[in-house]
Structures are given as structure tokens and as C-alpha cells.
Design a binder for these strands. Structure first.
Length: 488
DNA sequence: AAAAAAC
């Protein structure tokens, strides 16, 4: 064998975590998690963070940015790990900010996993839930704090935590944290931190304007880019369909069946739209959950957990779910609405195709969406071909009188609408045009219980009829529902 | 045209 051939595999081999100068406690946790080799963003960013430099890191969705900042940050934190033994006040040493509560929670779960063999105390605070337990935890002292901006400001105001000795700040989804909606809160929070500190910004998307703005929050930063910013993950198949609004639901049903997709997130642009669409899929008997800002935090976390656990097949969500959420092996993402911001498109479809898996992203565009689709094309630098949706079963036959109606239709709908509520919409009149309703109903005895088993009405502020959930009807899995042929 | 983030 020639020396060249011997050398080649070594050069190509991805760097291993165990080559990093990380404490044995962290190495053990990495090993426990089953991680061996680093992703490109991890291989590049971790040594630079360890050096103490400010970093602006850009890498595609699903390539391990959380570990890229968490591991070196924890390494740096280890010098504080026995602060809990000291009777003095315990200042926060590292702060991680995230734009949504679910993402903050997820980051905290990750950081805690990496920190589990150390004595570091990691806490997470966000709004929508009882503040008292968070206050108690903060007062006992934490070294690493993960937070959403609003609740953190609350805690600052209440003097529940001391941020004047923060050494490390991470902005996860940094471009979002720096955008106009978050910037005032962010600036207030930063005003409580020491000027001398290490700042890390990570995202899959950075616009030129945000990049420039970000410079003012960084000192002599290193730009770590493993892909052109705004690049979509290469392992996600992207398709765009031109379709009328009223056909969108049927097209989704058709694609789910044709491509045998077992689970999907369906993104819509508004909370009301999410609540409504989720309700229609639910009426169709699909195991569906909704995730949007008009739901209680308890419902939001339950929706996400049920989806992650596979107890729910369709998650209808607003952009609250667009960024960062790591749902293992999610096969598909639908954009029921084209997102208003092209960046959000990159993040939405980044929920699939994570950690090297393949995924499919399907965007449904009406004729009014041409400009938004153009924006996406420009951002991701890929040519978009708008396909015309070929709807099967365009004129479904009417069910004959003698034929037994699907059980789903015969079941009494639990419409216990309060007297004040408007009458439920007449869903049945549309049923014969709806492929879903023409499916025979086969209860799946093995189907996992649906989390909504306790009444979880959509928030009235969402403007949806406050009918209680059809909870006692077993939900059908997509596979069961769509497994057979469509009626002709 | 919206969503998110505190009470």
C-alpha cells in the first residue's frame, strides 16, 4: 500500500471529541450521550471558544450548534463548580438566551446532560409558568442560567439573580434575538452584565444587517462559518406547490399518503390559523396537536412532548416552533402558509433532516405568495420550481344512501358548547367532498392515548369555537388513515 | 399581512 492511501482516510476522518482538551467529567458525559465525532461547526467553534474569543457562528440547522457552545462554556465554568459549597452569594457565571420558551427548555436539557457529572448548577427560567420555583432555585444559586428575555427581566427586577459577574453570554438564534422585536429587552439584559465578558452568537441565518449590528455586541470576534449563512440543510428535499387555499388541506393529505409520511409539522402564519387548521385535522380524526402562543404554557409543552413521543402525528404550529427545536427523525415539514420572512423558511424546514437524516419540506403557495417565494429563492440561492398540484379525486363520488356512513361521521360530536358560544361550524355538509371523511373508521386499539384526554379547549382568544375536544374517540394514525386507497 | 417574549 502506498503511504498516500494510508494517509487519506486519516485526513478525511472527522475529529473526535476525545481529542479536545475537555475535562474528564465532560468527556464522560459526551461518551454517555454516545457522541464520538464532531460536526464541522463543533470542530471549528469549540477550540476558538476555549481560547476565550468572541464568536459569531453560522452553520446549517441540525448540525449541533448547542453542543458547540455548551461544551466549551461548561469547561470554562468548571472553575466555579464548587460555588455551592460556599456560604457567599452565588452569582450567575454563564447566561444563555433563547427566543422561545420551548427552545430555552431544550437547551437547558442539553446543557444539563453535558454537566451531569459536575457540580455545576444549571437552571432555566421562562414565562408562562409559576415563577416561585424558579425564584427558589435562583436564590439557592446557579452557575449557568438559560432564559427567555421577558422572564429573566422579571427576575432581575425582583433581584432574584445577580448578573454582574457573568463571564459568558450566548445568544442562541442570535439573529432573532437581535431583531427589532427582541432588541429592547436584550439591550436591557445586557446592560446588567459586565462589559468584559465572552459573547457567543449562533444561528443558521444571519442577514448582512444583523451581522453588522452583531459586531457592536462583540469584541474582536471570530466569524465561524461552516456553510454560507442562510444555507438550507443539504439533506432536505424541498418542493413548492402552487395551490389554492381551499385545496391545501387535501393536498397535504394526499402527499402524506403518497409519500407514506408518518409524522409532520405543519407551519401556518397565524395563531388563529394554527388553531383552526389543527381543529380540522382533528375533526378528520388525525392525531393532531397545536402549538402557538395563544395556548397555555402547559398545553404548549404537552403538545410538543406528545409530538416528540410519537403520540401525535401532526403538529400544527406557528413560528414559535420554527427555530431550534430538535425533534428526532422528523420526516417532513409542510408550510401551509409561505412564511413572511425568508429566514423563517430556512429555520422551519430545518426541523427535518437533522443530524444527517433525510427529510422533505413542502411549501404550499398561492398566487399571492409569488414575492415571498422569490425572497426565499434569493436567500437560499437555489432555483425554486413551482409545481402545479395535481389533486387526485377532484370530484369525489357521493356516498350512496345504502352505504354505511363512516363511523367517524356517526359518532356524536362532543359539542358541549357553552350557551354563549356561537354554533359549531357545519362540518358535515362538506364531508362528502372530503377524502378524509370518506375513509372507513378503524379504531386502532394500540393507539397511544392522546394527551388531550383532559379537555384542552383552544384558547378563546384564538377566536375558535370553544367546543371541547373530541377526546373519547381514538385518534387514527396517519398510516391507518391513509394506508388504503382513496375513494374514487 | 405575523409571531415571539412578563405580569
Amino acid at each position: 500500500m502506498t503511504p498516500q492511501l494510508d494517509a487519506a482516510p486519516d485526513l478525511a476522518a472527522p475529529a473526535r471529541f476525545d481529542t479536545l482538551p475537555l475535562d474528564a467529567k465532560l468527556q464522560r458525559a459526551i461518551g454517555d450521550a454516545g457522541y464520538e465525532t464532531m460536526t464541522p461547526i463543533q470542530a471549528k467553534a469549540i477550540p476558538i471558544v476555549l481560547e476565550g474569543r468572541d464568536v459569531m457562528g453560522a452553520a446549517q440547522t441540525g448540525t449541533g450548534k448547542t453542543a458547540a457552545f455548551s461544551l466549551p462554556l461548561l469547561q470554562k465554568m468548571l472553575k466555579h463548580e464548587n460555588a455551592s459549597a460556599s456560604p457567599a452569594r452565588h452569582p450567575v457565571r454563564a447566561l444563555v438566551l433563547a427566543p422561545t420558551r420551548e427552545l430555552a427548555d431544550q437547551v437547558a436539557v442539553n446543557v444539563k446532560t453535558y454537566a451531569k457529572h459536575s457540580n455545576l448548577r444549571v437552571a432555566c427560567v421562562f414565562g408562562g409558568i409559576d415563577i416561585a420555583p424558579q425564584t427558589a432555585e435562583l436564590k439557592r444559586g446557579v452557575e449557568v442560567l438559560i432564559a427567555t428575555p421577558g422572564r429573566l427581566l422579571d427576575h432581575i427586577q425582583l433581584k432574584n439573580c445577580q448578573l454582574n459577574q457573568v463571564e459568558y453570554v450566548v445568544l442562541d438564534e442570535a439573529d432573532r434575538m437581535l431583531d427589532i422585536g427582541f432588541l429592547p429587552d436584550l439591550q436591557r439584559i445586557l446592560s446588567f452584565l459586565p462589559k468584559t465578558r465572552q459573547t457567543l452568537l449562533f444561528s443558521a441565518t444571519f442577514s448582512p444587517e444583523i451581522k453588522k449590528l452583531a459586531q457592536s455586541y462583540l469584541q474582536d470576534p471570530v466569524l465561524v462559518e461552516v456553510a454560507r449563512p442562510n444555507a438550507t440543510a443539504t439533506n432536505v428535499e424541498q418542493r413548492f406547490y402552487s395551490v389554492a387555499d381551499e385545496d391545501k388541506r387535501r393536498l397535504i393529505a394526499q402527499i402524506l399518503r403518497q409519500r407514506d409520511i408518518r409524522q409532520a409539522i405543519i407551519f401556518v402564519n397565524s395563531k388563529l390559523g394554527a388553531a383552526r387548521l389543527a381543529r380540522t385535522f382533528e375533526r378528520d380524526g388525525l392525531r393532531t396537536a397545536a402549538l402557538h402562543g395563544d395556548k397555555s404554557q402547559d398545553e404548549r409543552l404537552k403538545s410538543l412532548a406528545a409530538f416528540k413521543a410519537g403520540e401525535v402525528d401532526l403538529l400544527v404550529a406557528t413560528d414559535v416552533a420554527a427555530r431550534g427545536l430538535d425533534i428526532a427523525d422528523l420526516p417532513a415539514v409542510f408550510n401551509y402558509d409561505v412564511p413572511f420572512n425568508a429566514e423563517d423558511y430556512v429555520h422551519r424546514i430545518g426541523r427535518t433532516g437533522r443530524a444527517g437524516a433525510s427529510g422533505i419540506a413542502i411549501t404550499l403557495a398561492t398566487r399571492d405568495d409569488a414575492r415571498l417565494v422569490g425572497d426565499i429563492e434569493k436567500l437560499i440561492k437555489k432555483t425554486i420550481t413551482l409545481e402545479t398540484a395535481e389533486l387526485e379525486n377532484d370530484r369525489p363520488r357521493r356516498r350512496r344512501e345504502t352505504e354505511e356512513a363512516p363511523a367517524a361521521l356517526n359518532e356524536p360530536r362532543p359539542m358541549a358548547a357553552p350557551a354563549a358560544a356561537p354554533a359549531p361550524r357545519p362540518v358535515r355538509s362538506r364531508s362528502s367532498q372530503d377524502p378524509f371523511f370518506d375513509r372507513p373508521y378503524e379504531p386502532d386499539p394500540k393507539a397511544a392515548p392522546v394527551w388531550e384526554d383532559s379537555p384542552a379547549p383552544v384558547s378563546p382568544s384564538a377566536g375558535v369555537n370553544p367546543v371541547s375536544n373530541p377526546v373519547h374517540k381514538p385518534k387514527r394514525r396517519i398510516a391507518t388513515l391513509l394506508g388504503g386507497k382513496m375513494p374514487t
